[in-house]
Design a protein around this nucleic acid. Structure first.
Length: 216
DNA sequence: ACATTAAGTGATT
DNA sequence: AATCACTTAATGT
């Protein structure tokens, strides 16, 4: 009963201050487990069941949707510290298989909460309920943004937005990615991305190297 | 030196 | 903007 994780209270204070009930914090420290993941690791794949909900404390996670017909991918959004995967809420509450894949974009640390508590705490702690609700809300908004960027915006704008996001999640002006990887994330052809990047280079917005993009 | 992979380019639809 | 068919450049063995 007393294998309380001593790191957790501090992590919560720093990244999830809005989970303010001290008894909630204590419970999280009791049942939560800290995990570290390296860049590129797959956290959750299509079709797998989710056994815990992650509270992201460090790094970034990429959430991707894959078309089951032709296997093409599409980047949905990035998760940052202080956030959680709201897909995992609905998945675990409905006990459904995952529709998405999440991979580690930048070395990540998270607190894994076993799903049985997610529901239990909804009734018990108002700040937890708010957290869950707000996660849904902000994801929903993010998703709408992604949808209309696909529907209404041109590829060059989408690419700029992508570079900006990626630079933000890595907190770096230098991005390590091939044109092919970018094309996959944006569901575009490699040639199109190469040409657009070339344009950006000519207008001095970026500098290109093999596997590398400097944002200027 | 050779093979492999990433990136650049023009033509075609 | 996608696809094809190449070429050129960079990198690994």
């Amino acid at each position: 009963m007393d294998n309380i994780n001593l790191e957790i209270p501090d992590l919560l204070r720093r990244h999830f201050p809005f989970l303010r009930e001290s008894s909630l914090q204590k419970e999280i420290a009791l049942v939560g487990a800290i995990h570290h993941f390296k860049e590129g690791e797959i956290l959750m794949n299509f079709g797998s069941y989710i056994k815990s909900v992650p509270l992201l404390v460090k790094g970034a996670i990429k959430v991707v949707r894959e078309d089951d017909v032709d296997g093409k991918e599409l980047l949905l959004y990035f998760l940052h510290a202080g956030q959680t995967c709201s897909m995992s809420f609905s998945c675990c509450m409905m006990n459904k298989k995952s529709d998405i894949r999440t991979t580690v974009e930048d070395d990540a640390t998270l607190i894994a909460i076993p799903i049985k508590y997610v529901d239990e705490w909804m009734g018990k702690y108002s700040s937890w309920k708010n957290f869950v609700m707000q996660s849904y809300d902000s994801r929903m908004r993010e998703m709408v943004r992604t949808i209309d960027s696909i529907a209404f915006r041109k590829m060059d704008e989408r690419l700029l937005e992508y570079l900006y996001q990626k630079s933000k999640v890595h907190q770096s002006k230098i991005l390590f990615a091939t044109h092919q990887e970018i094309a996959d994330d944006l569901n575009a052809s490699r040639e199109a991305i190469s040409r657009l990047l070339k344009k950006l280079e000519n207008s001095n917005r970026v500098r290109l190297e093999r596997n590398k993009i400097h944002i200027l």
